[in-house]
Amino acid sequence: MIGVIDYGMGNVTSVRNAFSYLGFATVLTDKISVLDSCSALVLPGVGAFGSAVEELQRKGLFAYLQRRHGEGFPLLGICLGLQLFFARSEEAPGSCGLTFFTETIRRFSSAGKVPHMGWNRVDTVALPLFQGIGEKSRFYFVHSYYASLTPEAGRIASCDYGVNFAAAVKKGNTYGLQFHPEKSGEAGLRLLLNFGRMVEGAHHPGD
């Protein structure tokens, strides 16, 4: 069972639909006892950094996620979920994120149209998460802020939009995706299948 964290930020229907389509059961919950029984946690999110931090704090999930990350439990952050893994964001200068990464999330400037919305090329490094996904495949993005960090600091995929930024990040078993795999057609489904297999074991019926 994959636990999708319910903290009131945006539409989580699509990511649950995608996992379900691939044969993985999900549960949408904010209850720690339920999240504890899951094989992985997904932090989705569309919305603002500041209010997302507040909601996670209010529900007691902020410290919980920090603890699970520290234990090496598999986490997947999507879009705003990835940004919440960072220490700060220009979107909410007063808010402190989960700080798995110490960098600051920045706003696109002079890059062209903001938000960066549409299908863009993603360069990935060789990892099981990206298995079977062609080089420079396109994924679907919708965001106005981005993470910039070096490969040494955990960047595992890159994208260009005026600036070269992190399309995906990894630290231990925590993965963050700036794009929406649940809206990225075949490539996105393959990535979610890879993630599902990694956390649910190799004997998944989808094999």
């Binding site: 890059a111 062209g112 960066h116 549409g118 299908w119 863009n120 090329r121 396109r138 260009d160 939009y161 005026g162």
Partner: peptide, 8 residues
């Protein structure tokens, strides 16, 4: 800047 043009 390599956003794909979309066909809808």
């Amino acid at each position: 800047m390599v956003l794909a043009k979309r066909i809808i």
